[in-house]
Structure formats: structure tokens, C-alpha cells
Design a protein around this nucleic acid. Structure first.
Length: 334
RNA sequence: GCCGAGGUAGCUCAGUUGGUAGAGCACUUGACUGAAAAUCAAGGAGUCCCCGGUUCAAGUCCGGGCCUCGGCA
């Protein structure tokens, strides 16, 4: 059971090793390993963590869910055991998890690791999560209000997306200008903040960067090679029993409208279980949508690149990265 | 061999009474502050199977050819 292995790994608190311990208490060193899905971040991060007394803080919006192991490409039990991991398997698939909760948990995990005199590694492909942590986004303190959201969505369905957007423009013209009226989800969120606080969301969005000294390593591959890796990985997931995993989730009572079920590798099974798609259709859909997803990831990284050192995953041995991180740690204070 | 259907964007197809082509998906790109593996937007792309004919004008009509699929032999 991967869940147990993960829990065990999380609870293990290895003895501090002074070798890589940061000397400056004021500035927490943070190594970030980011990149598109399937590029090989997990394996690299574990090598670096093992070599440099590190602990991994996952920045993956899907690996937070328990019982979703194959489809989220969660680290295997032996990988979880090889280095402490945080923010994996922390909620059930029917729970709503959010950016704000992630950001808080990530800051706490990074502080804790630093307090243990170990090296925090922030590793993942969820660009928004990474950026919110690194840039210190001040996320408006307005938790989602499901009934208000439903009400606003119904309004859009009845009156049209334009009418909903008009309501936003009336209370928050700045946000209205930035959000496409057809993107109902974002219009709803902006309105939600306005209606619940009386303040426009655009006025509440601030940044206060955390006191970290950051090394960002971006792992990348040529598009074609990455697509091939994705196709192979999807085939492997299916061979490893992805269908069984999805069925088990449904049998456990989790429904298609659970937030976790919208993820790649899960949502694509719905037509198959309804009898409208073959297994090949499902595999094709997962591959196709994963390829589209990596393009979105690159768009995010390109637009939020504050000094990412990009490395070709096929041409960079883990030792090279370990050396790079070690040099960077030794440069501290220089 | 005969009968029928069809050959239009990478794929599946739509193209109204003839006026030099569209849709979905793919592909590429962009947005993104409590659903983000979500959600939304933009863009490039086609010798309309080939040859000939009718016409001011043919993806569209006529003739011939090639190819694919189905049925019958």
C-alpha cells in the first residue's frame, strides 16, 4: 500500500547531517527542481536529496490525493523511502484542496526542514503552486463558498457569460479587464471575493517574497522526446493497473465530480466506464491531453521564469546536478 | 466482373439553387492569485483524387480515368 509507505517516509526524521546544513539562519536555502510532467524530476530529486541531506517538498497538485498513485505518477514506495517527502498523500480524493492551503503547508514544510538543518528541495510541475511559494503571493483570504459559486454559475448559465462578467465589471473593473468573460470559473472566483469582502480581488493580490535563497533547476527535453516519454509512461500506467485504480476509487464511493477525478489519467476513463470508449480511446485521450498539459506547463514556466537554470534531461547526469547544487551551497555568503 | 457509396486541413467529416472553402479534434501559442493535471482564449495549415468538357465563374454540373469501402457474382 503506497499510502503506508508514504506515511512512513514522512514520519521518518533522519538525524541531521551538518555537511550541507545552511550557515545563515536568515536566509533559507531552497533548491527548486521543476519541469513538465514525465521529464524525470522525481528520480533526479531523490538523487539530489540523498546526496545532499535533503528532504523533498512536492509541488504537485495531484499527488496530494491519497489512493491515486499510478495515474499521478507518484513516487514508488522505495523512492518515498529513499528520501523524506512532504505534501504527498495529504487529503482524500473528495476533499477540495487549494492553492492557499498548499502555499501555507509548503512554507511550513520548508521551515521545518531548515530547522532540522537539512536541505529543502521544492520539486514539482504545478507552476502556480511553485510561483505562489517563490513569489510569496498574498492570496485573498476568502475560502471558496460552494453555494455562492453554484449560484453564480447558474446565473451565467441562465443569463449568459457576458451578464456575469458585467456584474464583475461593476464591482471590480480591473479584474474584469484581466479575465476573459468566457472563463466563467475565474469570473466566479473574482466575484466571490468581491461579494464576500466588499473589496475588489485586484486590490487584494499582493506579493511578499519569502526570505529564501533560491536555486531553480528546470529539467527539460525536446518536445518530440518528451511526447515519446509521455506515450510510454501512459502505456506503463495502464499496464500497471490504472484501470483497476480508477475502479477502486469509484467502488470506494468517490464520484466523477470529485475534484481529484478531474486529473489526467482519471477523467479520461469516464466514457469508457459508461461504455462509450474503448481502452485504446482512453489511452489515446490520456496521451493527447498530457501533451497539451505539458505545453501549458511550459507557457507557465516561460512567463514566470525568475532565473531558472534549464538542463536537458537526456544529457544531464544526476551527479552533474548534485555538483551544481553543492557549488551553489558553498557559494553561500559570498 | 457487376451494382452501390465515397475520395475536401494531420484525422473524422460538413459544404445550401455553381460565385476560388468550413467544423470538431490534432498541432502551435497565450492568459492564469483559495478548483490549476483545472478553466479559458488566439493562431497557422488545404494542388477540394487526376485529365478533359460546359460556364463569365466548377469542391459543386457532364464525360473519362485512378483509388478506397460495402454488396453481388
Amino acid at each position: 500500500m503506497p499510502t503506508t509507505a508514504a506515511s512512513a517516509a514522512r514520519q521518518t526524521a533522519p538525524a541531521p547531517a551538518p555537511e550541507a546544513a545552511p550557515q545563515s539562519p536568515a536566509r533559507v536555502p531552497l533548491v527548486v527542481i521543476l519541469g513538465p510532467t514525465a521529464v524525470g524530476k522525481t528520480a533526479l530529486a531523490i538523487c539530489v536529496a540523498s546526496a545532499l541531506n535533503g528532504e523533498i517538498v512536492s509541488a504537485d497538485s495531484r499527488q496530494v490525493y491519497r489512493h491515486m498513485d499510478i495515474g499521478t505518477a507518484k513516487p514508488a514506495p522505495d523512492e518515498l523511502a529513499a528520501a523524506p517527502h512532504h505534501l504527498i498523500d495529504i487529503v482524500t480524493p473528495d476533499q477540495h484542496y487549494s492553492l492557499a492551503e498548499y502555499q501555507r503547508a509548503a512554507y511550513r514544510a520548508i521551515q521545518d526542514i531548515h530547522a532540522r538543518e537539512r536541505l529543502p528541495l521544492l520539486v514539482g510541475g504545478t507552476g502556480q503552486y511553485l510561483t505562489a511559494v517563490l513569489e510569496g503571493w498574498g492570496i485573498p483570504e476568502v475560502p471558496p463558498d460552494p453555494s455562492l459559486r453554484a449560484e453564480l454559475e447558474d446565473f451565467a448559465a441562465a443569463q449568459g457569460a457576458r451578464a456575469l462578467h458585467d456584474r464583475l465589471r461593476a464591482v471590480d473593473p480591473t479584474a474584469a479587464r484581466r479575465i476573459d468573460y468566457r472563463n466563467i470559473r475565474r469570473v466566479v472566483r473574482a466575484l466571490e471575493v468581491s461579494l464576500l469582502t466588499g473589496a475588489p480581488i485586484s486590490a487584494l493580490q499582493r506579493k511578499s517574497p519569502p526570505p529564501y535563497r533560491v536555486l531553480q533547476i528546470g529539467l527539460t527535453l525536446p518536445r518530440e522526446a518528451l511526447y515519446e516519454r509521455i506515450d510510454a509512461r501512459v502505456d506503463r500506467m495502464i499496464a500497471a493497473g490504472l484501470e483497476r485504480e480508477v475502479r477502486a476509487l469509484l467502488d470506494a464511493g468517490y464520484t466523477w465530480d470529485c475534484p481529484a477525478m478531474s486529473g489526467l489519467g482519471y477523467a479520461q476513463w469516464q466514457p469508457h466506464f459508461a461504455g462509450d470508449a474503448t481502452l485504446d480511446d482512453v489511452a489515446d485521450a490520456i496521451k493527447r491531453e498530457t501533451r497539451a498539459f505539458v505545453r501549458r506547463q511550459y507557457t507557465w514556466f516561460r512567463g514566470h521564469d525568475s532565473g531558472i537554470r534549464w538542463l536537458d534531461a537526456a544529457q544531464t547526469a544526476p551527479d552533474v546536478v548534485i555538483g551544481m547544487v553543492r557549488d551553489w551551497l558553498n557559494d553561500e555568503g559570498a
